[in-house]
Computed example of a mutant assay.
Amino acid sequence: MADKSIIEKAKKIFENYLVRQGSRKTPERFSVIDELYALPQDEHIDVEGLFLRMRNNGYSISRATIYNTLDLLVECGLAVKHQFKDKVALYEQALTYKHHDHYVCNQCRKILEFSDQRINLIKEEMGNTFSANITSHSLVLYGDCQIRDCKNLPMH
């Protein structure tokens, strides 16, 4: 169940961003926030999945509007865009985003999120090595699913 206060906060941030950019505040754009933020917090979705979800929920919206709106949401910090290996771009909500890294299975394509404090130690050490203030990082681990009878494995 989506947290209505988070969705309303996201909409307010988006509205202010659109006003500053001189962009139109259309109901379709705000409906993308409704659907993206209705997903479980750790879920990643592509444009096609979001399009089908929105159509199934009665919205009349084009893929182009979804693409453009997601780009705007990434620009204003309300969505995070990921490009995993050979996959299409995937998005996740960012308002309550806590940094995490990803494991992607080469076989079943399942995406799992994880956090490990040791990565922050490496980041700090590399910052010292490079005399830099490292402000962000991205780590994606790829592996082969070892889950017996994994329901996500593609049919052959």
Rank of each mutant, 00 (worst) to 15 (best):
E92L: 07
K81S: 08
S115F: 11
S60G: 05
M1L: 12
D34M: 00
F14Q: 02
N128M: 08
H100P: 03
L52V: 13
Y17H: 13
Y142E: 07
H102V: 06
I119K: 09
R20S: 14
D101V: 03
A79N: 02
R109P: 00
L139K: 09
N128P: 01
F30H: 04
G49L: 00
R55Q: 14
C150L: 07
L72T: 03
D144Y: 13
K87R: 15
K9W: 08
C108T: 11
I66C: 00
R109N: 14
L95D: 11
D71T: 12
D116S: 12
F130I: 04
I61L: 07
Y97C: 11
C150M: 05
L18F: 08
H99Q: 14
T69R: 04
E48V: 03
V74N: 06
R148L: 11
N133T: 12
L121R: 15
L39I: 03
I119R: 07
R53V: 01
F14K: 00
S23L: 15
I66L: 02
I122Q: 13
R24I: 07
S5T: 15
I122R: 13
E43I: 02
K11G: 10
K110H: 13
A10R: 09
Q41R: 14
G127I: 05
Q83N: 10
S31C: 03
V19F: 13
Q83P: 04
L78C: 01
C105H: 04
R20N: 14
N16L: 14
I6P: 00
N16R: 15
E28M: 08
V104E: 05
L121G: 15
K151S: 12
E43W: 08
M1Y: 15
S131N: 15
K12M: 14
I45G: 04
K98R: 15
T65F: 04
S115A: 09
Q107V: 12
I122G: 10
I119M: 10
Y91L: 05
V74P: 02
S31Y: 08
E48C: 03
L39D: 00
Q41Y: 11
D101T: 09
G143Q: 01
G58M: 02
L50G: 00
C108D: 10
E8G: 02
I7P: 01
V47E: 06
L153I: 14
V104W: 07
I13D: 09
Y59H: 09
A89W: 13
H82E: 12
E8I: 06
L18A: 10
I61C: 00
L18E: 11
M1Q: 15
K81Y: 05
E125D: 09
K25I: 12
V80D: 06
K85C: 02
E92A: 11
D144M: 09
I45W: 07
R29W: 04
I33P: 01
H99D: 14
E35A: 00
N56A: 10
V32G: 00
T26V: 02
Q93K: 11
Q21M: 15
G49N: 04
D34F: 01
K110W: 08
S23N: 15
V32T: 01
V47T: 09
S5W: 06
K25F: 10
A2R: 12
V32W: 00
